[in-house]
Write a protein that binds this DNA or RNA. Sequence first.
DNA 1: CTGAAAGCGCTTACAG
DNA 2: CTGAAAGCGCTTACAG
Lengths: 328, 328
Amino acid sequence: MKSTINAKDVAKLAGVSQSSVSRVYFEGAKVSKKTREKVLAAAEELGYRPNEFARSLITNRTKIIGLVMKGVQNPFYPQVLTQFTNSFKQHGYSVLFVHTNSDEIQTEDIETLLNYNVAGVVITDATMSLNVAESFKENQIPLVFFNRKLSRSNFYSVCCNNLNAGRAIAQYLIAEGLKNAVYISGNENTSTSLEREQGFSEVLEEHKISYTKYVSDYTYEGGYKTALTISGKGNLPSAFFVANDIMALGVLDALRKQEIQVPEQVKVIGFDNISMSSWPAYELTTWEQPIEKMVEETVNYLLSEIAEYTGLAESVELDGEFVKRKTT
Amino acid sequence: MKSTINAKDVAKLAGVSQSSVSRVYFEGAKVSKKTREKVLAAAEELGYRPNEFARSLITNRTKIIGLVMKGVQNPFYPQVLTQFTNSFKQHGYSVLFVHTNSDEIQTEDIETLLNYNVAGVVITDATMSLNVAESFKENQIPLVFFNRKLSRSNFYSVCCNNLNAGRAIAQYLIAEGLKNAVYISGNENTSTSLEREQGFSEVLEEHKISYTKYVSDYTYEGGYKTALTISGKGNLPSAFFVANDIMALGVLDALRKQEIQVPEQVKVIGFDNISMSSWPAYELTTWEQPIEKMVEETVNYLLSEIAEYTGLAESVELDGEFVKRKTT
DNA sequence: CTGAAAGCGCTTACAG
DNA sequence: CTGAAAGCGCTTACAG
């Protein structure tokens, strides 16, 4: 029953060889107009569709990109996922989606990607042990860390320029009369959180302004609890710099619960510019990540590496933009 | 350079036939313990990995499920995506992710799914023209509409019992003294929105209570604008039943802006129970969809159809649960 | 430009 | 339980 119409069937109906049928569907192959028309007519009649697996088997290439995501709970990611999928689609690639629960991508997920011989891989917000990452290098499969850097690794990564963003945020707050600050971090040891803090702290130090760091986890609940703890101590800083928006929203709700006025008593700045940040309930001042540019950069790199593998490892950092709203 | 180690290489090193190597990796095939050990040792040494494409080519089956999603913006979906991916992974299936912008899934997306000969398909929140859907039937590829019903079609669908939910919500509001209501719908002609309204209206009619319907679009902005329009007219109902949570949050923010007290002046009920609904800024009363059960039901159906295709078409509706918070 | 033929890396009857 | 051999549906030198 399964439609198992193959090139041979089409060839027979069209009165040509199976090779010619193949050539019609293989980009870059030469076929006469006449042959092409005969083949397409026959294919149409039979409902022929080239088998991707036979194709991949022989070319040793696929049109599949592995997209590994962690923390899809953050509203930042659906947007990233959508943009990647659409962009890859435009270039003829499909997306094999892999979800990882842990910070470090699991061996079994890697196996999946290797088994399907993906043309390229994007790893979002997760890390990977170096020896595992090496297997991609061995197989010459291009790989991009998106919104994460892997220290001591030689892989391509695409991020927002977090260091500059942290600096700019500090400068803005200082210009507004910052006395002291709190930095609420994301999961420890994530490059994004560390770099945002580093830029922030550098500028504060220059101005001899102190800040306290609280470690949180990039979740709404984490931001909420951390802010409650801090306000419970009764000693508010003049501003909170929160490592991402979703935590910052938690901070705002916690402050609201304590009847602390934002921005009058304390300013709050987030990071990402997720859609909720602009909601009237929050109006969060934040830093917009240039997602579109980041996705484009990632896709372009992968496509060029697929065309010709060089193993180029770079750390690309794209500038974002300060978005002033009502929490500062 | 490409690691092109195949079963033959392993066979040579292990001192067995290529068939034996194959049998070690093929579930259900019989191999002696001794052979298996020799093969595994050799495979380990060479870094052998069975080629999925050769496998699929010959078995005419794949371990790939096509997951088609629309409207990933709704925070409801990341959760669904994660659960599907994890559940399929447990059963040895990978997910090919397809994003569709329009309500109706496009032909090119279907082509992708068919080209990869996916073992099954889940279509979330989107519809499909019937003749396109037929091509899945022809190829005996099991298909589930998730959170959507396709009228006049004979496909399997898995939904929350929206009719009952609408009824229960009406009954609750009536018990609380409902005088008149507003129903804010999602995109017109979506089965979810229609059924929620139908259940709601049936019970209201029984009690001779009137309601007005406003058509919106399942987005935060849509809910916000609609509520502004309604409150602008100065004539508030005793309750809003909003077709999903994300719109209901928009409604709450609009009411807050107009300084209308919830629930004192007007009650608000949403649908989905997304994580934001429980945030202190909202505390939205809503109806929880049994996502976990819905995913499980979908996966089980697909697996059984993959094992033995029957083409069974049913409309499965699972009960959700009322979640009372502070907006009623 | 076209066809006949080899071969990609597997699974699977078929003998033994 | 094991091996030799055919074949899945393609691409791709090789002749013509």
